[in-house]
């Protein structure tokens, strides 16, 4: 690739900008971690819980604002409390679980409403809502990068240690129970891991991106391969691709003449959504093609 075409793709200053570096590193790390945890989440049908945790972090964030402690502590406290409440209320049935998730989420958001109300009246930090909801890749402070990386690696380590029982109990709870896997404990452990993973990604990249990175790449990867390990690798790759190309588009869009810079979260979400649509439509047309192929085969034979 020669210098000219590189300049067309990467607007001036992309590689020398330090917010971009931080965004690429922290966002990329979170994408890889979310991709791996996301495959379990999608296979277990817990997308709603995954998203609910990110919304509930609004509660933690606003509580931290109010108490004047670090946001991270608010997020972590809410993650642990919410995972516990869901586990207590959430029965083993999928429908019951969705309702339990919804009830906990509704209560947590209600509390967030109160805390934000106090935030806005007491300390007039009106921007709190938007910051917590959307986050911004370009405003991540460089100091949080080591913590983000360390935390992501810890979650990845936990996921790889519990890989087998987790997968087994996700695919067939009955069979896993028969084989002596403590299914309920594994489920509770996963819920806690999910809550922490989401808290970490929500504080780094915002609530929207946290859900997008958790579900999108994993769902896309599971369309491409059914093997869990391969799906995790693919999901991490797709997440990275989404975050990095999203950052690039967002950065470039601010430099285009007459253009207003697009929010990085929007760009990343759009890339991830489009990738899912492509995998979805490709799978769909392939299914149609093989169906008609079988038709012909059956009629000919």
């Amino acid at each position: 690739m020669n210098g000219l075409s590189a300049n067309v793709v990467f607007e001036a200053g992309f590689f020398s900008s330090s917010p971009v570096h931080v965004a690429l590193v922290a966002g990329g790390m979170v994408a890889v971690m979310s991709g791996v945890v996301g495959v379990f989440t999608v296979v277990r049908g817990q997308s709603f819980a995954g998203h609910a945790f990110s919304d509930m972090d609004t509660t933690g964030g606003s509580a931290a604002f109010l108490l004047g402690v670090g946001t991270l502590w608010g997020f972590l406290a809410v993650a642990v409390a919410a995972a516990g409440a869901m586990e207590l209320l959430g029965v083993e049935r999928r429908r019951g679980r969705d309702v339990a998730t919804g009830v906990v989420l509704g209560a947590a958001l209600g509390v967030a409403a109160l805390l934000l109300f106090w935030d806005t009246t007491v300390s007039s930090t009106t921007g709190a809502t938007t910051t917590i909801l959307f986050g911004s890749l370009f405003t991540i402070s460089g100091a949080t990068v080591p913590a983000t990386v360390a935390f992501s690696l810890a979650i990845l380590a936990a996921a790889s240690v519990s890989y087998r029982p987790l997968l087994f109990s996700s695919l067939s709870a009955e069979m896993a129970r028969v084989r002596g896997v403590p299914v309920r404990l594994v489920g509770a452990g996963f819920l806690l891991m999910l809550a922490l993973a989401v808290a970490l990604s929500a504080i780094t990249v915002g609530a929207i991106l946290s859900t997008a990175l958790l579900i999108g790449p994993a769902a896309t990867a599971l369309r491409l391969t059914r093997r869990p390990a391969a799906a995790m690798g693919a999901a991490a790759g797709i997440g990275l691709l989404g975050v990095w190309s999203g950052i690039l588009v967002a950065y470039d869009s601010a430099q285009w003449p007459g253009h207003h810079g697009w929010p990085a979260s929007f760009c990343v979400v759009a890339v991830i959504f489009v990738l899912y649509l492509v995998a979805d439509l490709q799978g769909w047309t392939r299914a149609k093609r093989t169906a008609t192929g079988q038709d012909r085969m059956a009629r000919g034979g």
Binding site: S47, F48, G50, H51, L133, F134, I208, L209, T211, A212, L214, I215, G216, A219, P263, S265, F266, V268, V269, A270, I272, F273, Y276
Partner: peptide, 9 residues
């Protein structure tokens, strides 16, 4: 989930 994040984005 994907529709939701796309909406919010």
């Amino acid at each position: 989930a994907l529709t939701l994040v796309m909406l919010l984005g």
